[in-house]
Design a binder for these strands. Structure first.
Lengths: 239, 239
DNA sequence: ATTCGGGATATTGTATCCAGTCACGCCCAA
DNA sequence: TTGGGCGTGACTGGATACAATATCCCGAAT
């Protein structure tokens, strides 16, 4: 029988090793890691040359990323969008609606291995915090979320969340620089891990909600101070 | 300045009249209208010939639809997936999380024109119900949802909802045949319209939730009876 | 009769090529 | 010096051509 039914499992891309998929994942990772920042332009032929492939798979990867909200297409190249405040609010609104429930589901389904990985991610986050290692902290954060999301049995829910998280992640990296925000994040993670290991779905849900609200608050607070300092995060043209 | 910022508005496709977009919309409409049903195979070169264009835009449209969950790609053509029961449950779970809030937001932002369109959609649904016109009832349903979703200011939320609705819509068409289900639907629409015209966000939210729960219940009830009758909705191979 | 294997074929994936369009910069004039 | 028009080029969109591959069918051997 042809696999024409989704049957609950995540739909693996048709050819997982297709150039399109590899390129897409590569760019997505660069976005997650902040190696490509808002305002950057992505030109298909450029990337194609760098990778030694033709334009077509690159183009398809870029179009897919546009479709997923990571990029916007202009008449003059694809660019990473600089999200407006309303955009950020909108994304956080969706996250508030989805993530608490997803966390509750994950808490019920967590395997011992996933629990161990969560603990590891927390430990790494703490160490990174102590060492003031921003990149490592962000990496631990990603591992943490990827892990509990993998325990969510509803893959549509999980991947929807992942997409929206990624989109704010780019800008969130900036707010993570603030030590006070880092404290809040670490404390939040700690409590959530605790709820997860206790398999306490209700607590996981509630804590995830406050975690998101904290992230939102800290972002807008940071933005306000930057605004007051006359420094727009969008990095407008320099006079 | 290049329009590289999303700024709250829906990101119109770069070239709205591009072949890719036209084809994508065409196929999406056919799916919504049940003109393409689960199990059908879509072959790019075939569609391309029928439309008199090359494979490339068709292929890109199909890939995009895969990305949005409408299709799955196999090694031998793109097919409309036959959703498993778990898939349906999963989709309904996401809808339960998103639509009540979206309805509340829409109730606060509804324009008089949109209100009028909602009334019209309700009237059409009633007439279709009386005339036992299933297609027209489904069309009225689509108009209804498209209208209130257009009042949702968070376009990411709105389009996410639309995608998930479309995916169950295909299979929901089957359950709408049941007259009793139709009664429930009409009654639900009536109450929701009432909440909308009163701009009662809380009521809209609650009613939307029960509306979805009813839809879910009626689907699984219908499925159970079909199951008991030995007739699987997936329409397995005929001996 | 049934199963295993090999080749034909249908269909996707990738490369190259051509066309159209929009942005930017230059140049000229006021 | 500044504003506006026009040309040029960079980039995307679409078409055509080529390669890779999984599936299906048929035949042969057990």
């Amino acid at each position: 029988m042809t696999p024409d039914t989704l049957d609950g499992r995540a739909p693996l891309p048709l050819r997982p090793n297709s150039l399109r998929e590899q390129i897409r994942e590569s760019i997505r990772r660069q976005l997650q890691h902040g190696e490509i920042t808002p305002g950057d332009r992505l030109v298909d032929v450029e990337i194609a040359n760098k990778l030694g492939v033709s334009r077509m798979p690159v183009r398809e990867a870029l179009l897919q990323l546009v479709n997923e909200g990571y990029l916007v297409g202009t008449t003059r190249g694809f660019v990473v969008p600089t999200l407006s405040l309303k955009d950020i609010q909108d994304i956080f609104e969706v996250r508030r609606l989805l993530e608490p429930q997803a966390a509750a589901n994950a808490a019920r389904n967590l395997t011992p291995e996933q629990e161990a990985t969560l603990r590891e991610a927390l430990a790494r986050a703490k160490k990174a915090h102590a060492a003031r290692d921003l990149d490592e902290l962000a990496a631990a954060n990603r591992l943490f979320r990827a892990t509990w999301l993998s325990a969510e049995p509803n893959w549509r829910l999980a991947s929807t969340i992942q997409r929206f998280v990624d989109q704010v992640q780019i800008v969130r990296l900036g707010t993570l620089k603030d030590p006070e925000t880092q404290d809040v994040v670490i404390a939040g993670l700690e409590k959530i891990v605790d709820a997860f290991v206790r398999r306490d779905a209700a607590a996981a849900s509630a804590l995830m909600m406050t975690f998101i609200l904290d992230a939102e608050r800290s972002f807008f607070a940071a933005h306000a101070t930057r605004e007051a300092a006359g420094d727009n995060y969008q990095r407008h043209a320099i006079p």
